[in-house]
Amino acid sequence: MSAVWSTPLVHDRMMVTGAGSGIGRGVALEAAARGATVYIVGRRIERLKETIALAEGAPGTLIPLACDLTDPVAVDALFTGVETEGGPVQALAHCAASVQYQPAREITFESFSQVIGTTLFTAFNTLHRWARPLLDTEFDGVAVALTSSVAHRGTPGVAHSSAGKSGIEGYVKSVAREWGGSGIRMNVVGPGRFPVEKSKDMWDRLTAEENSTGTARIAVGRYGRLSEIVGPIMFMLSEAAGFLTGEVLHVGGGDRLTPAIGAPPGITAAQATGDA
């Protein structure tokens, strides 16, 4: 992936979670293209190796690390290993995110807990552990967490996902205020509809009519391209965003300018999660 526009990264050693597919993979490839050393994190090492293969020839380096980010003990071991190797990681893109569709009346305590665990708890485990050594030293740091445009729309079918992602945004805003004096910047990027790898099958199932209905609800009249969400994330990690913290940037082609768009056309409660 080559950037249409770029500015120097604040730090050339960083971590990207959710790097085995979708937006996280795109961020990792762009960082490698800019010469960074990138620790790429995901649940499955084979998917991370696929990301590395796609970066062949890039000036940067991708280092795969498998980890279950819902497990705080595993997350602590992940960061301890990286810090032992080269000190604290000063840049983080937490892209391990998904949206699950389910009518609110069908949500059980178990399904609500599962979705909150894979969104809010995962973000807390990662961001909190990342910041700890930075707060104990004179190192500065910058982090970006991925949420979703559904968190602010009152979108039908995603009550548990919206709760988790809204929680991430609230957490990031609070800690950005607390930790700003220590040189730590933290922001959020909320993507709209991007038919990337993890959700590609979902989008491929849509009929022409369903796609037309979906894009009509977006101000620019189409779904997003991967480079159009990777770019804003890289901006947040760059020197150009040095005075930006505690902000939520929505990247949805103006989807928030129209009434609530609901779950994607053709998606039922039984269908799986996807990047959002």
Results as ranks from 00 to 15, higher is better:
Ser149Gln: 11
Thr108Trp: 09
Asp68Cys: 06
Ala270His: 07
Pro133Glu: 13
Thr268Met: 03
Glu30Phe: 15
Arg105Pro: 10
Ala131Tyr: 14
Glu197Ser: 13
Phe109Glu: 07
Gly167Lys: 01
Leu62Thr: 07
Pro59Gly: 04
Ala123Cys: 12
Met1Trp: 13
Gly231Ala: 11
Ile45His: 15
Ser148Tyr: 09
Gly60Asn: 06
Ala36Gly: 05
Met1Val: 12
Gly60Arg: 02
Leu135Arg: 09
Gly35Gln: 09
Gly190Lys: 01
Ile45Cys: 08
Thr118Asn: 04
Met14Asp: 00
Asp71Glu: 07
Arg205Asp: 11
Gly231Met: 02
Arg105Tyr: 15
Gly170Trp: 11
Arg105Gly: 14
Ile52Thr: 04
Ser227Arg: 02
Ala97Phe: 14
Glu209Ala: 15
Gly242Lys: 01
Gly253Phe: 09
Ala3Trp: 05
Leu48Met: 08
Gly42Arg: 04
Thr207Met: 05
Thr119Met: 11
Arg205Lys: 14
Gly18Gln: 02
Ala123His: 11
Leu69Asp: 01
Glu138Lys: 10
Gly190Leu: 06
Asp68Met: 05
Leu69Trp: 07
Thr258Met: 14
Arg217Asp: 10
Lys49His: 15
Glu106Thr: 14
Ile116Glu: 03
Ile184Asp: 03
Val10Ser: 04
Lys49Ile: 07
Met186Asn: 06
Ile45Asn: 11
Asp136Gln: 09
Leu29Gly: 09
Glu239Lys: 04
Val73Gly: 00
Arg129Leu: 07
Gly57Asp: 07
Ile63Arg: 02
Glu50Phe: 12
Gly18Phe: 13
Met234Asp: 06
Arg34Gln: 14
Gly242Ile: 08
Gly252Tyr: 08
Phe112Val: 00
Glu83Tyr: 14
Gln114Leu: 12
Gly214Glu: 12
Gly266Leu: 05
Pro8Leu: 03
Thr80Met: 08
Arg205Thr: 13
Leu206Thr: 01
Val158Cys: 03
Phe139Cys: 09
Tyr223Met: 03
Glu106Pro: 13
Lys165Tyr: 15
Pro88Asn: 06
Phe235Trp: 08
Ser6Ala: 08
Leu62Phe: 15
Phe235Tyr: 08
Tyr101Asn: 05
Thr137Tyr: 14
His128Lys: 04
Gly192Val: 03
Gly57Gln: 02
Pro59Lys: 00
Leu226Glu: 02
Ala97Trp: 10
His160Gln: 05
Ala96Tyr: 07
Arg205Glu: 14
Ser6Cys: 05
Val158Gln: 00
Ser6Arg: 01
Pro64Ile: 05
Ala241Cys: 01
Gln90Ile: 11
Ala58Trp: 13
Asp140Val: 07
Leu146Phe: 11
Gly262Leu: 06
Val89Trp: 11
Thr126Arg: 00
Ser149Phe: 15
Ser182Ala: 13
Ser199Met: 07
Asp68Trp: 10
Gln271Val: 06
Gly190His: 07
Asp136Gly: 10
Val75Lys: 00
Ala219Gln: 03
Thr80His: 11
Val38Gln: 00
Val115Trp: 14
Val142Ala: 06
Glu169Asn: 13
Thr84Asn: 12
Cys95Leu: 04
